[in-house]
Amino acid sequence: MAHEHEPGEEHEAGPRHELSHWAKRAYAMRDILVEKGVVTENDIRQQAEFTESKTPANGARLVALSWTDPEFKARFMADPKKVCAEMGIDASTLNEFVILENTDKVRHMVVCTLCSCYPRPILGRPPDWYKSFNYRKRAVNDPRGVMREFGLDLPDDVEVRVHDSTADMRYLVIPARPAGTENLSVEELEKLVTRDSMIGVMDALPSVPE
């Protein structure tokens, strides 16, 4: 957990540092909405906990199973939300959910140029860099340069397709399965599937990290 206490608690003890104008208004709106019975403290706490429970481990599992089971991959790509539901991953808040598979010749990279749309039920909250103005600006006209910054130097003959997310359309990349991983279990393979590889700016890890 990145924060030290629940979002319902801070105003009792007082913040530990000076809050910005808008941070104060967040607490103020929370209190007003609770007083008016629009939401409860519990609703907010449960929502925060629900969000914290969504991590890239969900996506890693879906990718590792897609690598090892062609029938699963076919079903996942054809109807991702249905397969998520079968796996106990609630993706119902996504409108359209599209799975993109990297190959030797074609790579996919996901951005939201207009803001920060992201497959939150599968990967959790987007990382700061995904929401940054520089990523939003550059992903669509300099994807190879962006990937180079992340440590990936693509050969010229590999095609790069950039997908601009919207409120109604979210994407997940299935990175290529690293060579030499034929003998790894699904659980070991999951450890190779990083968040950034599912956004498409990186490859999966070549081996299980120590």
Binding site: A2, P7, L19, Q47, A48, D128, S132, R138, F150
Partner: peptide, 24 residues
Amino acid sequence: AGAIDRTEHAMDDWEVLADALNQV
């Protein structure tokens, strides 16, 4: 645009609240 800052920041409590309030 310049280089992408890949530093992650730990969320402040008010940011967790902003996120949760929007969602809920």
